[in-house]
Amino acid sequence: MAQKQAVSPAHRPRPLSPHLQIYRWPVTMGTSILHRITGVGLSLGAFLIAWWLIAAAAGPDAYGTFLILADHWVGRFVLLGFTLSLVYHLLNGIRHLFWDVGAGFRVRTANATGRLVYGLTILVTLAIWLAGYWVKGDLG
């Protein structure tokens, strides 16, 4: 703004940022919104855990129904979403707690830990599901 103007304002290229086609979401914006989405998702998921416990308490028949629904592809899809949400929210929640004691606040650090959380979420979820299939005996 403090620059001397050699060209008239009409000929100077106007600032275009944030440009729709080159605009990129900052990493920290994504992690923050995902923390909220997974928090709400997990609050709904609490109904699933309650249902699991209530079905177990109600007896073998009710538990059998729970198992059939959980084993259906729709059930598995929901459970995969639940695992992803829980792992993400857990890892990013730990990141939040570090911020709360004043650590990891520099932009570069926050971006790096955000990417780390993304990567670890995928790896840990994958490990949990592989372990689950192994326990179930589907992996031989």
Partner: peptide, 27 residues
């Protein structure tokens, strides 16, 4: 949140150990 960190890790480990388990084992 702090209390939930160990509790949720315990839950995840427990749930994996019980994937497809029969009613009696869960009880």
């Amino acid at each position: 949140a702090l209390a939930l960190v160990p509790l949720v890790i315990w839950l995840l480990v427990s749930l994996v150990a019980m994937v497809g388990a029969p009613h009696a084992q869960v009880i």
